[in-house]
Design a binder for these strands. Structure first.
Length: 272
DNA sequence: AAATACGCCAACCGCAAGGGA
DNA sequence: ATCCCTTGCGGTTGGCGTATT
């Protein structure tokens, strides 16, 4: 928007998309499919960069993209996921059907970050403090690191340790859309308890490896290999504090997730 | 009514990763 | 091994609408 043209990109149109451009891009993608964005721009006759086309499609034109206000349920989920994942907007967005990373990022930067900051003193009091809480030696890695620049936000420094997913209680209500969250809650608390007993050193999560279980294995591989049960689960991501799972059911009910996170047993235990 | 301040959000940029030649 | 291209991600910017003075 209003950026200075430079170099050989002078011909590129910048700024807000008009309805005609949207129409052209939508038609082109629907007939030719996504990908090859640079060629999309040329072949569709749009004086836009491939990047711009891709962004416009993914954020606004793609079917299923939800517009409008973030619901309280979504807002709550964003807060929970941000606590676990940090500024991994794409990961967070992936758990909010129809929402884009850009939208969630904006929402966070504008409204939630302020609110969280205001609530911080209370949260810090509620969270367990680890002996080496200030010793954050995880450098920015890809999967297991927490890239958030706001170190203060990472207030629960319980290190995670991969465990066989079969260890996660399976005598709960497997049919409920909430069961995976109950299991996750149980899992996290198991980790916290174990960490308290054994000390945090044993549960350091490296950039992409679990120290002590390493072998150059990424956490996703490490856990998924542990048990065939893992086929039901996928790892969304991880921070230096936690792993976060979700079953491969694409139809997990958002309202149910939020309701769980709002419940006394779910929300407070999971967060704290 | 006009000027200014502020908040929101769409879009841009730079960088990194992955894949193919 | 290296280069190039494409894609994806997170941070930042600037335009626009609204509120305030």
């Amino acid at each position: 928007m209003g950026r200075k043209p430079s170099g050989d990109t002078d011909w590129l149109k910048r700024g807000a998309w008009c309805a005609e451009e949207d129409e052209v891009l939508t038609y082109y993608v629907k007939t030719h499919g996504e990908g090859q964005w640079r060629h999309v721009a040329k072949k569709a006759g749009l004086n836009r960069s491939g990047k711009s086309c891709r962004l416009r499609w993914l954020n606004y034109l793609k079917p299923g993209v939800k517009r409008g206000n973030i619901s309280p349920e979504e807002e709550d989920l964003i807060i929970r996921l941000h606590k676990l994942l940090g500024n991994r907007w794409s990961l967070i967005a992936g758990r909010l059907p129809g929402r884009t990373d850009n939208e969630i990022k904006n929402f966070w930067n504008i409204s939630l970050s302020k609110r969280i900051q205001e609530e911080r003193p209370q949260r810090i009091i509620n969270n367990k403090q680890a002996p080496n809480a200030g010793d954050n030696h995880h450098q920015g890695g890809n999967y297991c690191s927490n890239p958030s620049k706001d170190e203060d936000d990472q207030s629960n420094p319980v290190k995670s340790n991969p465990v066989p997913l079969s260890d996660i209680s399976d005598d709960r209500d497997q049919n409920s859309s909430l069961s995976f969250l109950r299991d996750f809650d149980s899992y996290i608390h198991g980790l916290s308890h174990e960490a308290e007993i054994n000390g945090f050193e044993n549960y350091v999560v490296d950039d992409s490896n679990f120290v002590g279980h390493g072998n150059g294995t990424k956490c996703e591989d490490l856990v998924l290999r542990e048990d065939a049960e893992a086929a039901k689960w996928k790892i969304l991501g991880a921070t230096s504090d936690h792993l976060i799972f979700q079953p491969n059911h694409e139809d997990v009910d958002l309202h149910a997730i939020s309701a769980f996170l709002n419940s006394q047993d779910g929300y407070h235990q999971w967060v704290n």
